[in-house]
Amino acid sequence: MARPRQFDEDAVLHAVCEQFWDAGYAGTSLQDLMRVSGLGKGSLYAAFGDKHELFLRVLRRYTDAVDRGVRLSVEEAPRAVEALRSFVVSPVGDPDGAAARRGCLLANTTTELAATDPVVAEEARRTYAGITQVLAQAVARAQEEGDVPASADPEETARALLAAQQGVTYLGRTGMDVRTLEATARSLADRLLPV
């Protein structure tokens, strides 16, 4: 009879996510995973599979949370255009720029692995398509609310907003001054969502 797990799976997955996020996939060793999870090699593999399987599980958990966050932000915004502007500026993060320098786990992963890992590439496409759909619905709502011109194509505008947000994410990773980064993000939002 199998022994019950003696660890908090959510806590382990969170710790492993933080490790991959900070060091990347290639920069994370099995020893790193054992250290942050508090599990031995056998327990880690028995519970989560190999490094790649564990990484994909963490990545999917992260992308599901991102999807939920974007949806919730749009649903809770008094006006859709506010949620769209906040989305573009979201990579700026905290005033000291630490969140901006850290970037987004999905964006970091896509840059590192999508060209050589078809599963990662598909996860990125799936997530970005889902976000685009939510943003397109928000653009349509903003049109109904009179905040976005009726002539704007919701899907094209949504893709442009996603590209702008990802560009801000990328620039944040370079260590750009947070005030400059925020001004850039706000300028992009203003151009894509003119008042």
Rank of each mutant, 00 (worst) to 15 (best):
L105C: 05
F7W: 11
G38E: 02
A185N: 03
G42S: 15
D94P: 03
A83W: 02
L54V: 07
S37L: 01
A115D: 15
Y128S: 14
E182A: 12
A15S: 01
R68M: 07
E112L: 14
A185S: 02
F7Y: 12
A100C: 01
D190V: 01
G40L: 02
K51D: 05
R79V: 08
V92W: 08
L30M: 15
V168E: 03
A107D: 14
A183V: 00
L56V: 00
T63F: 09
L113D: 04
D190E: 14
A185I: 04
A124T: 12
R5D: 09
S86Q: 14
P4G: 08
A142S: 11
E122T: 09
R101K: 12
V134Q: 13
A99D: 13
D177P: 06
I131D: 08
Q137P: 04
A99L: 13
F20N: 04
F7C: 10
V178P: 14
A100F: 03
R60D: 10
A65H: 07
A150Q: 11
D22E: 15
Y45W: 12
N108S: 15
A2Y: 11
D10P: 09
S37G: 06
R179F: 09
P91V: 02
E82N: 08
T63E: 11
Q143G: 04
L161V: 00
T169A: 06
A160R: 10
S37Y: 02
A83H: 00
T132G: 15
R102V: 01
Y45N: 12
A185L: 07
T157R: 15
S29T: 10
T180P: 06
L105T: 05
F55D: 05
D22W: 12
R61W: 04
A140G: 10
R101A: 08
E123S: 01
R57C: 05
Q31Y: 09
L162N: 02
F55V: 01
V120I: 04
E122N: 14
T63L: 05
A23H: 15
K41E: 12
V139H: 03
R102M: 03
P194N: 12
V66N: 02
L162I: 01
A183R: 12
L181A: 08
Y170T: 13
R5C: 05
G38P: 02
V92N: 04
A150V: 09
N108P: 08
L54R: 09
R186G: 01
E76T: 12
Y128L: 14
S43W: 07
A160L: 08
E144H: 10
V58G: 07
R57H: 08
P78F: 11
T111W: 13
Q6G: 14
A80L: 07
G172L: 03
T127Q: 06
V66A: 13
P4S: 03
L171V: 04
L105M: 15
H14Q: 14
R3C: 02
D50N: 04
V148E: 06
L59D: 01
T110K: 13
L135D: 05
A114H: 12
G172P: 06
R5Y: 06
A185M: 00
F48S: 03
L33Y: 01
G175H: 05
A164R: 04
L33R: 01
G103H: 02
A46C: 08
V119T: 12
P154T: 00
Y62E: 10
R191K: 07
V36I: 00
A136T: 03
K51W: 08
L171E: 09
A152K: 08
Q137S: 14
G97N: 04
F87Q: 01
W21E: 10
A163M: 08
